[in-house]
Design a binder for these strands. Sequence first.
DNA 1: ACATTAACGATGA
DNA 2: TCATCGTTAATGT
Length: 228
Amino acid sequence: MTEDPLERLLSHSSWMNCLTDPQANRVRQAISIVSFAAGSTVCARSTPSAHWLGVIDGMLKLENISEGGKSSSFASVPAGAWFGEGAVLKGELRPYEVVALRDSQVAFLPRDHFLRLLDESHPFALWLITQLNARLGHYVALVQNFRLGDTTAQVAYSLSGLFNPALFPSTERCVTISQEELGRLAGVSRQVVNRALQELQERGAVRVNYGSIEVLDLQALQDVAREA
DNA sequence: ACATTAACGATGA
DNA sequence: TCATCGTTAATGT
């Protein structure tokens, strides 16, 4: 039963602790699981936000695409995280595209089940407020970083954001992401990412591997992100 | 100054 | 073989 990937996700999802056994079982049965190949679209932009999404395995990105076909992602979502509650709450069309960065498995919880939990469970509502607040804090810091920091600080902040324990409780020390993808996340070119990572490696904050980055000193990474 | 795009060769999986 | 990496040159703001 620990082989069940959905159970693995749920056992690491702190909001499950807010639910009663009947509620938890209801949720289990309502969730459907879909696999996506790297590069495929999980949710198209401007389609109804009919589900709350959890990443069982792999990694997703949330991105906007400009007219010129250039894409900029504003969030990467590693395994273990749930997202999309904003669009579900507002009942609006999804304002961004969800794309699998690698082969991924995604859990879909239907919108009505999500809303019912919110209606029935005070602890779940409190958990959700905490979650939204943590995300708000992340983006407030992102704006400050964008205005005050140099490009190395931007890369450092974007990378450290993947290890924010409030948002992504169960991320490992190592993240599989190409320098090009990190560039899309940080809003800079791949060349700048490459130089920034080498500088961060010289400082001992990270180790750069082929297709992945290992964080050796998260505090040092966050310190660089705050430099102006 | 410093970032961006384009391009090239080298190298890992 | 393909993706990714490290680097350089030309160009833009």
